[in-house]
């Protein structure tokens, strides 16, 4: 982890006092006790304006409405599809969540999405962790066909996306690969340079705060011959 990056941040473990002041507000992964703000999770402190938060270094994916995820069909019921999203929950895709009208008397649900199909889909509602809904009625949503799949620590996904999508946009543009980043840590990659892209994603996952990471990634990308970019498929930035 680069000295530069760590200069304004502290490594904290649960319970550590980050600061003691009523002028600041407890943000993500922190809690207030009396005048102090404490870390709730293992991670690095981050102060933005008056908000104090902790950037987690490890986490499981907790579904949040609006997130794009890569999910797999694991069951088909009479009124929709059950999708695996993460160890914490499955999600349900109902008939109203797909783009076309399905007359269940005339066609089987499996003819739309069958078991083991992969979907890039949008979390539409989280009532409780056992009732999570997704929708394909989202411009970015689609069925994913032949490609590579990798699992990334969900805590590192924001780093892979980068500030306002800067990192992933660079990777997509320079590699010519189609990439769908699931907030759940599952990433789908399609293209001739998929293997090289996986290597880059693994590098970012293992050294998210290394000095000059962006330059290093750019260099690796320049070393591969870019394919023509076919469309803006799966752009979540």
């Amino acid at each position: 982890m680069s000295e530069e990056f760590l200069k304004n941040r502290d490594f904290v473990v649960p319970g550590d006092e980050i600061l003691k002041s009523m002028d600041y507000l407890p943000g993500r992964n922190t809690y207030r006790e009396g005048e102090s703000i404490h870390a709730k999770k293992l991670g690095l402190t981050s102060v933005s304006g008056r908000v104090v938060s902790v950037i987690p270094l490890n986490s499981v994916y907790i579904p949040k409405a609006g997130d794009m995820v890569v999910a797999r069909v694991i069951d088909i019921q009479s009124n929709g599809w059950v999708l695996y999203v993460s160890p914490i929950c499955n999600a349900f895709l109902s008939l109203s969540g797909v783009r076309q009208y399905i007359d269940t008397n005339r066609m089987s649900l499996a003819s739309v999405y069958s078991i083991n199909n992969l979907l890039y889909t949008n979390i539409s509602a989280v009532n409780q962790l056992d009732s999570v809904y997704v929708t394909m009625q989202d411009p970015k949503a689609r069925k994913l066909d032949d490609g590579r799949l990798i699992n990334i620590n969900p805590a590192k996904i924001p780093r892979i996306i980068g500030k306002e999508g800067s990192m992933i946009t660079m990777i997509k543009n320079k590699s010519g690969c189609r990439i769908c980043i699931g907030q759940n840590g599952i990433v789908w990659i399609q293209g001739r340079e998929a293997e090289a892209v996986i290597e880059i994603l693994r590098l970012i996952e293992s050294q998210p705060y290394a000095e000059g990471l962006t330059d290093k990634v750019a260099k690796m990308l320049d070393n591969m011959k870019a394919e023509e970019i076919k469309d803006d498929y799966g752009d979540e930035s």
């Binding site: 319970g15 809690y31 709730k40 999770k41 293992l42 490890n58 499981v60």
Partner: peptide, 11 residues
């Protein structure tokens, strides 16, 4: 538990 990123008050 802390290593797993579980939210905790304290160790």
């Amino acid at each position: 538990l802390a290593d797993a990123g579980i939210p905790m008050r304290d160790l």
